[in-house]
């Protein structure tokens, strides 16, 4: 049986909300960036909180290096609920729940189209 080398395709990691729940913010960010830096596409069932997104951008920036890592492409459905979320919901961090998020290496993933209900991306090999 021929051996399947990673470079024969693009690896996609689908990470459940349950798995993410058990991790601290920095562990989530590390897991995402380690995957993406290996050339994988990471799909999060429930996405990140706004604060985690902010830290993901910050840590990504510190890791960019010329000819090696250009950063990430990240896509979620645009959120509409935020405006209607009650103060309590926001306090409990409930507004950020359940938004499918796709993250990949910037030089391998290109967004073709995006609207409230559809994200189309083109993924190429390394």
């Amino acid at each position: 049986m021929p051996e399947v080398k990673p470079r024969d395709g693009v690896r996609i990691d689908l990470i459940s909300g349950e798995r993410m729940d058990g991790l601290a913010s920095m562990e989530k960010i590390r897991m995402i960036l380690d995957g993406v830096r290996d050339g994988n596409i990471v799909i999060l069932e429930e996405g990140l909180s706004p604060d985690e997104e902010s830290r993901l951008i910050e840590v990504t920036m510190t890791e960019i290096s010329p000819d090696e890592f250009n950063g990430i492409e990240i896509e979620t459905y645009p959120r509409k609920e935020t405006a209607d979320a009650s103060f309590l919901d926001r306090l409990m961090g409930r507004e950020s729940a359940k938004k499918l998020t796709v993250i990949g290496p910037a030089n391998q993933i290109e967004t073709l189209h995006k609207d409230e209900t559809l994200i189309q991306t083109l993924v190429s090999r390394k």
Partner: peptide, 17 residues
């Protein structure tokens, strides 16, 4: 304006009230 950076930043700003 419908870019991920704008969506995320506005979300971050809103989450901090």
């Amino acid at each position: 304006p419908f870019t991920q950076v704008n969506t995320m930043l506005i979300g971050i700003i809103e989450s901090q009230d």
